[in-house]
Amino acid sequence: MQTTSKPGGWRLRDVILLTLIGIFFGFIFWAWAFVYNAIAATPLKPFANDITIGAWLMAGPMAGFLLRKAGATTLGEVFAAVAEMAIGSQWGASTILSGIIQGIGSELGFAFTGYKAWNRFGLFLSTLTSTIVTFAWDLYANGYGSYHLGMLLTLLIIRFISIGFFCGILVDAITHLINKAGILK
């Protein structure tokens, strides 16, 4: 086990772990990205965007739950974004920008609990904040501001369901498996 503790409590092992998880998650959703790209080429793009968004945000809260410290969620998401860029994402450097926004969105929920509630409540808050932050970002960056109110509400609900499933229910189920296996002290 790696014992050097630098910097700010970040060990080499943690950095490698979060980057590997980011790459793994990216690969697991790889096949899905083609479906997304197919729908994203039609006027249904905002729906495709909001149905799939939860998958791309999962690395963040998972990292938070594994390391349980301030900054882990944001960095987990940013590492995943850099990994995506390294693999050759079509979005190039812009991936990092969305990684930072998504990471901060998920982190806020845990921050509101003072990084103490590593349970379903913290996870629920995190899904809530990431839904709000990413949606606010898309109001500008993705031109959501042009849609009428009914469509915006529909998109917001779809997004919350997607983030709730991937970053809430699925992360909770994975954490349960990890706790049962007793691999994290």
Binding site: Q2, L12, I21, F24, M62, L170, A181
Partner: peptide, 30 residues
Amino acid sequence: PQIFFKAILTSLRWSNNLAQAMTSHGFSEG
């Protein structure tokens, strides 16, 4: 959840091994 669980298990093992290997090859953090 199982596929992610297995992926995390593998990541934990690899990251431990890799960090140890790097340290033993003279990499010192900070």
